[in-house]
């Protein structure tokens, strides 16, 4: 573990990107921040700009219109960062696998841009807040073994 991954795993700042999701995963992510689940216990904090973010929380099956914007967010994010694909849509497109306007999933877009970007999959429709926290903690623990 180097100091960069140590820093991220201690207080991951989250930036939320909706790429066409149905709101379910989004409200569960916001739920994680409110008193009952409270990820600020782990140093997690929702920030307003990708330039401050350590973890991009991506939801949705990547619609045609949001893909170029998402690529710009990836370029704008301060490196190193990791991408967390929250929800079945973001992991594998789920029930929108044959929709004409969905060209995801998230991993496909990040791989086309840069194969080095680490993508965490948190499946569920929607994942419960517990699952989101569990996924994040698992991912951040794995980070300790990766050199960013």
């Amino acid at each position: 573990m180097n100091w960069k991954s140590w820093g991220i795993s201690k207080s991951p700042w989250l930036y939320h990107v909706n790429t066409g999701s149905c709101n379910n995963c989004d409200i569960e992510i916001v739920d994680c921040l409110t008193p009952k689940f409270d990820v600020e216990r782990f140093g997690g904090k929702l920030v307003g700009s990708p330039r401050h973010a350590d973890v991009l929380m991506v939801t949705g099956p990547m619609t045609r219109k949001s893909k170029p914007r998402f690529e710009r967010i990836l370029e704008a994010s301060a490196k190193p960062f990791i991408v967390a694909a929250v929800g079945t849509c973001a992991c594998s497109k789920g029930m929108f696998h044959d929709a004409y306007n969905c060209i995801g999933p998230v991993r496909k877009v990040t791989e086309a841009l840069d194969e080095e970007i680490m993508v965490l999959n948190i499946p569920g429709c929607p994942p419960r807040p517990e699952a989101i926290i569990d996924g994040l903690v698992t991912g951040l623990n794995q980070l300790k073994e990766v050199k960013l």
């Binding site: 619609t63 029930m95 004409y100």
Partner: peptide
Amino acid sequence: YNHRGIEKLSEKKTFNQVPFLVER
């Protein structure tokens, strides 16, 4: 940005499958 084309997708589903789709 959230347009997924559910109305188009719905034409491919059976009447009993559509509720699960429109739930999303």
